[in-house]
Design a protein around this nucleic acid. Structure first.
Lengths: 214, 214
DNA sequence: TAAAATATCCCTATTTTCAGGGATAAAAGA
DNA sequence: TCTTTTATCCCTGAAAATAGGGATATTTTA
């Protein structure tokens, strides 16, 4: 009795690499591979009763991202385990994944042994998160800097977004119909809140949080 | 007589995928694989006379990025061809790569046939850029918004990198052992050259060009 | 309902950035 | 060889950002 796996990833080479190591073991049966989540969703709808043990998915993919896909999978059939594989390891994103109840996360630059280990662990009913990911997560949770849980208000987001778009304080004030003093206060608070030194830091934060496009 | 290849990529699975398809052809001999550029640089220094036909490299890697690596390779031995493989496809970055005289570029989500085709083409003496990359490039070149070819000097890159790392002009001057007036000139020139308005614009550019991380 | 957070505004003083001029020597390219 | 680019430095003045210190009204939340 083999375990049934589905793999979703738009990187062909990665897919091939993964397939070759999974095929070298004979306990895994690859039901399906796909370039994006929409195919998988359709497959699940057409085959609602098929036994699927694990879906391995990337995060950044065309058409449907891995987080949305994961959500849909868990809604449709909570018995299906999910392993996320990605090159992103932003603490907030890891938070997000855990909140979405994924069963594991392995960075794409992991060794193949780790992939096999992760798959085995998850199918066995446990969760698997790479050492690296755990470290980032706990570091983030327990670091002093993080204690002031960063939550920007909508207004703060408005301001930092315009800052990152190269508006001056005066221009932002005009754009938002506020006093320039108000914007100065926001800038000041943002610098303190985000623990950065200047505009460059604010800009980087805005980019990281995707308030603005590249 | 086989062709000698070197592959630099920190994604193990990708590396494995690539190795397996290259090994299935018997005209390629993989001299070396590495997780980052520094190993390759050392290898080239130790073996200056070895015949190396092609180095395949990622862009974002720990320790040394692919663009810097490419530059060093071409300086050391201009006979070595380089194929860049990446998931990034920003027009300015493509420009940057072409300016650095890489011999080809293939996105990481390409089919394996395309990789083989690219390798063959480049070793044959031609350049190979994916359709997708060419489209982005020409679209960019011929679009109304098209900017003049931007080429930063190493010093300019030094300065913009530190700016994006939240250093003030004074601090950059100290870091680079230059007058603060010099740094002011650089900042001014950078703003004019890159057609941005302020530090935020410079920071975004530095990020886009991957002079700094995240 | 009381406390906390949010949104708004104001002030002073200092530092930094930005825009606009320059200059000179060395290196690279035509 | 001549021209252009690069790297370095200088100056002024205005604008903007940064670092402090505040205040007040409203909204949320505990």
């Amino acid at each position: 009795m083999k375990y049934n796996l589905i793999i979703v990833d738009d990187h062909k080479m990665f897919l091939d690499g993964l397939l070759s190591i999974l095929n070298s073991k004979n306990e895994y049966n690859i039901l399906l591979t796909a370039k994006n989540g929409t195919h998988i969703v359709k497959y699940l709808e057409i085959n609602p009763n098929e036994k699927i043990d694990l879906i391995i998915t990337d995060i950044t993919m065309p058409e449907m991202d891995g987080i949305t896909l994961n959500k849909i999978i868990k809604e449709k059939n909570n018995n299906i385990k999910t392993l996320v594989v990605s090159m992103h390891n932003d603490p907030d994103m890891i938070d997000n994944l855990i909140a979405h109840d994924v069963d594991g996360y392995v960075p794409k630059n992991a060794e193949k042994e780790e992939f096999l280990n992760a798959i085995k662990t998850i199918i066995g009913g446990d969760k698997y998160f790479s050492r690296e990911i755990k470290d980032i997560y706990t570091e983030n949770k327990f670091s002093k800097k993080r204690k002031e849980q960063i939550n920007l208000t909508q207004r703060e987001i408005d301001v930092i977004t315009l800052i990152a778009q190269e508006y001056t304080t005066q221009e932002i004030a005009e754009e938002l119909f506020l006093s320039k003093h108000t914007i100065e206060s926001y800038r000041k608070n943002l610098i303190a809140k985000l623990n950065v030194r200047n505009l460059a830091g604010l800009t980087k934060y805005a980019l990281k949080m995707k308030y603005i496009k590249s």
